[in-house]
Design a protein around this nucleic acid. Structure first.
Length: 404
RNA sequence: GUGGGAUUAGCUCAGUUGGUUAGAGCACUAGUUUGUGGCACUGGGGGCCGCGAGUUCGAAUCUCGUAUCCCACCCCA
């Protein structure tokens, strides 16, 4: 038997597909209310796009990409995340030159060659949004409120972690400062941290090793080294979140794994889905458009992990809807099919192709979760009527076919 | 990539010190006398016991390999 590849799942059982579609519908509705519109970009992109945007020092690009040469000899990758493609499309379509604000939302599969675990798949789905052209930190706050809105509508509890990664003014000096500090304790830190020192020094701060953590207690903190503009934006952000009743915790060790982030960084985490606890994450990336050869354009965005959210969703109760039709006489089957077809123009309608007794039809209608069970037997056929029972209100009537 | 646990019906799981035709609940399907659903009762279908080797008279059960899922690390949504 041929099976799906490791870490790549089908979404086909009822619990999965109802949750998946409910999530996409809910998130789409919210994003549209915030004035975002749909964008779809290719799954396959030139490898260079991800190397330049996500960053070669990141694990995602360094060891997790589905990268190969296509038949035309191009070095291509299946997208490991969504932002790079949207930024590429933004620049390619010259929206960076058009000016103004451009807001997009997208959803689709992403690919990372990781060791699978609960909440960590090789093909997984993200819902994300990107906003271009807004320099204001209020846009960052709006992003966070949008995530909170979506989660609230889905009945999902969360903790929000917040940090500022600084900008090109305050980050580099801080980084040098931190590297100096790391060198001062270099002999005592773990191997991973020694590697991080050169690849991505900020990452040492959230090392899980207890010994490292105790050494880093005295490490310089970026939050205390922010420049005036970053400091003021971070205060504004906290203030606006306070004003809108969004609870958060400052996590000075929060470092997003993608190199393009600056200033605001945030992560929504859940304590109920195991160790892969990040359910949404995002932040500002003011320099990425320029990195990818566009005109400098401020931008901010986030992405949500659909599979991780799915099991947390509190699903609304299923409601009875539409019609079920059946025949109790072989002669009536084709009439039933035509009537079902007619009903489908306005609502959900299903029918049974076999002629069955009334009890069987009522059972079927119940299982199909229809509100109305409609049956035609020999009596109805003769009088050109149809028997209709409302399964919800337990009422029934026989009506003329003309009025059905 | 490293370490650990699991894998038996569509789903959730039993299965004795290795011993006859491998079980249950749910789900599916058909009936319970002829036109009234959810409930109940009675039948029925459905298993290469993950896959491949080995030990044995005999393996779901023991050994090894392999695949997948799960847990932790790592990483991140």
């Amino acid at each position: 038997m041929i099976k799906s590849l490791r870490g790549m799942n089908d979404i086909l059982n009822k619990d999965d597909y109802t949750r998946f579609t409910y999530f996409i519908q809910t998130a789409t509705t919210v994003a549209q209310r915030y004035g975002f519109h749909f964008i779809e970009t290719p799954i396959l992109e030139e490898t260079a796009l991800f190397k330049r945007s996500v960053g070669e020092s990141s694990d995602i690009v360094g060891k997790e990409m589905y990268q190969f040469e296509d038949k035309g000899g191009n070095d291509v990758c299946m997208r490991p995340e969504g932002t790079a493609g949207v930024v590429r499309a933004f620049i390619q379509n010259k929206l960076d030159r058009a000016g103004g604000t451009h807001r997009f939302f997208y959803h689709g599969p992403m690919f990372r060659y990781e060791r699978p675990q609960k909440g960590r798949l090789r093909q997984f789905h993200q819902f994300g949004v990107e906003s271009f052209g807004q320099e204001s930190v209020y846009e960052d706050a709006t992003m966070i409120m949008m995530v909170a809105d979506i989660l609230q509508k889905l009945g999902i509890g969360y903790r929000l972690q917040l940090n500022s990664l600084g900008c090109k003014e305050c980050m580099p000096p801080y980084r040098d400062n931190l590297v100096n500090f790391i060198e001062s304790v270099e002999n005592e830190i773990c191997e991973d941290c020694q590697r991080r020192k050169t690849t991505n020094p900020i990452r040492v701060l959230d090392c899980k090793n207890e010994k490292c953590q105790s050494l880093y207690e005295n490490a310089p903190k970026l939050i205390n080294s922010l420049c005036e503009s970053c400091e003021s934006d971070f205060s504004k952000l906290k203030k606006i979140l306070d004003a809108n009743n969004i609870a958060y915790e400052i996590d000075t060790n929060l470092v997003r794994g993608l190199d393009y982030y600056s200033k605001t960084a945030f992560e929504f985490v859940s304590d109920n889905i195991g160790s892969q606890s990040a359910i949404a994450g995002g932040g500002r990336y003011d320099r990425l458009v320029e990195f990818l050869d566009g005109r400098p354009t401020p931008a901010v965005g986030f992405a949500m992990g659909v599979e991780r959210l799915m099991e947390l969703i509190v699903m609304p109760e299923e409601v009875r809807e539409g019609f079920y039709l059946g025949a109790m006489d072989e002669e009536a089957v084709e009439l039933v099919i035509s009537l079902t077809q007619k009903k489908r123009q306005d609502t959900k309608a299903t029918c049974e192709y076999r002629s069955r007794n009334l009890k069987a039809h009522l059972k079927n209608a119940d299982k199909a979760n229809a509100q109305y069970c409609c049956v035609i037997g020999s009596n109805e056929l003769e009088s050109q009527t149809i028997w209709v029972k409302d399964l919800l209100n337990k009422t029934e009537e026989t009506i003329s076919l003309k009025d059905f």
